[in-house]
Amino acid sequence: MTLFLEQLLNGVQFGVMLFLMAAGLTLIFGIMGVINLAHGSIYMIGAYAGTFVATETGSFWLGIPAALAAAALAGVVIEFLVVRRLYGRDHLDQVLATFGLILIFNQAVTMLFGRQPLFVQMPSILDGSVELLPGLSYPIYRLTIILVGLLVAFGLYLLINRTRIGMLVRAGSTNREMVRALGVDVRLLYTLVFGLGALLAGLAGFMAGPILAVQIGMGEQILITTFVVVVIGGVGSIRGAFFASLILGIVDTGLRAYLPGLLRQVMVGPEADALGAGISSMGIYLLMAIVLLIRPKGLFIRNS
């Protein structure tokens, strides 16, 4: 039971990380109609910048503003130099241009930091575990991630439902032309949304540092999973992204935790482990296939 709860928490933790990525991606698509593959690169930039500063200064906390600043800056620069030219172009151009960005960023980071993964030391206050329930102790760091993720989700909820910018964002994701017609400075709105998405991706990247290795290619791995989140949740829907992130996080973690064990009862150890790992990696995609069969537009989009 405690193991189960622990895995559930792990799932939620993975889920909120996915949400930080998916929120930006789904907003950028919903409002600007741009599919941005370089979102994963921004995640990587946040991770590298934060980890680098944290390691150099010896302070984990200084890594946070560094990660956020680097990611937001990268986001705004990307928007300004490349993505801005892609609004209104077809998806093929968007995919290829942002694919080009991935190549550039991956290679640039390799040139700066080398191929060896970086690791960041957690601050002592977050290192260790708390006992949540009798017999269930859980790493503080992971709990912090969950907390931060939920806070961000709540903040986004307020931003989108309670502010003027949020109103424009909502209007923009349902009817792009209308926002233009309202006489809003669309360029500024776009840059803001893109920067916000980048900020969240950078935050996710830096927080992932102490759990996963900071390395080249980390961005693409999570990017593709994030795509699955966006498809399941429904493109353009933040609420959908939130629930789909949690569902995927829990399903993925659960499969990885339990499937090899189950398979081991019917086959030999190493083979069961390999196959279990394979099928659990496929799990979220199979989930996506099922969702597509039932609701092609995603779980949280009303069918018109």
Partner: peptide, 9 residues
């Protein structure tokens, strides 16, 4: 855009 993401996935 869903088609792009799904084929990739």
């Amino acid at each position: 855009v869903q088609f792009i993401m799904i084929t990739l996935a």
